[in-house]
Design a protein around this nucleic acid. Structure first.
Lengths: 171, 171
DNA sequence: TATTGTTATACTCTATAACTATA
DNA sequence: TATAGTTATAGAGTATAACAATA
């Protein structure tokens, strides 16, 4: 298991997760390929992939404040400020003072932002299908469910972060 | 499908890859969690996760030169130079002139490097199991096979990069 | 002329801490 | 005192181009 032989073993099953760290290599490689296509798909959208993810999260998850928005995406609040500045500048979102907490601000999408998001989403959905084209429908769905489950494990295990309610009861 | 309702639909199947970009969010989140634990596991190893991956690739994939090594890991050759400097400094690897091409250098591991790698690999294997603990054995193996297959699709689709021979005939 | 590896520069991210206004 | 958001600064990481040696 400590991997002495270069490429022997691989006993029986087509699996053989022989080399420690390989799962990470595969994850990183898929994510890299994903992000390259993602970058093309979002085109000129301010903030690139991150900008898209903010718009998507605002629309589909409706986080209460910037903190929740950032923690869902793994973006630090100090970074989110600049990112939101760009999106506000382009009139894609607005910062609305929270009625219940005057320190907090809720991010809401504009009509313009919604249009931009929907157009980008079509392109994103397109390349996601492209990336998964080597899988049949069952395998693709199963992969998504598994990865999303793991993602939620990770999300939950980070102390001080508990912004999973939305996705939690989506399942 | 364009997501008007906040969290409705999700028709039938437990899957529902409804939101474009969510696969990327899940991938990124899992990778983030993975890398946090990875960082702990490699500890003081020079170059951190990247350093570990270099050692692992050198031992398990035996790339012909730095170019092949870097392209397997998605590391630019200009970055790899500095990374290797650190590893050489700690006597974990050596740069050996290639006999067939005097421009190229082959990276070989030292006895010391092999020890360090094996010790780190135990810890890495440990946390990988931990990360996947919510999956049963079949699901974990299937996930690995699927992800690795996608990773190889990505790897192959990058023009000018073809360092997949090693892993290719591993399958 | 193209490629391997190195070096130097600039740019972009990210992490940290300090500040404000609220709670 | 703690939290939401902002701002400023420094550090790490990354990309780019130029260079020497070799193919």
């Amino acid at each position: 298991m400590t991997g002495e032989a270069k490429m022997s073993g691989n006993d029986g099953a087509t699996a053989g997760a022989m080399i420690p760290g390989d799962f990470g290599w595969a994850l990183a490689t898929v994510l890299r390929g994903y992000q390259l296509k993602f970058d093309e798909a979002v085109g000129t959208l301010p903030g690139g992939v991150r900008g898209f993810q903010v718009l998507s999260t605002v629309v589909h998850r409706d986080p209460e404040n910037q903190q929740a928005l950032g923690s869902h995406l793994g973006i630090d609040r100090t970074v989110l400020t600049y990112l939101l500045d760009e999106l506000v500048e382009e009139s894609l979102v607005e910062r609305v003072p929270s009625p219940s907490d005057r320190r907090a601000r809720k991010i809401v999408i504009t009509d313009n932002g919604r249009q931009v998001l929907e157009s980008a989403e079509e392109r994103v959905a397109g390349f996601e299908a492209e990336l998964l084209e080597s899988l049949d429908e069952d395998a693709a769905r199963e992969l998504f469910v598994t990865i999303r489950g793991l993602a939620m494990d990770v999300h939950r295990s980070r102390p001080g972060v508990s912004a999973c309610e939305a996705i939690d009861h989506l399942i």
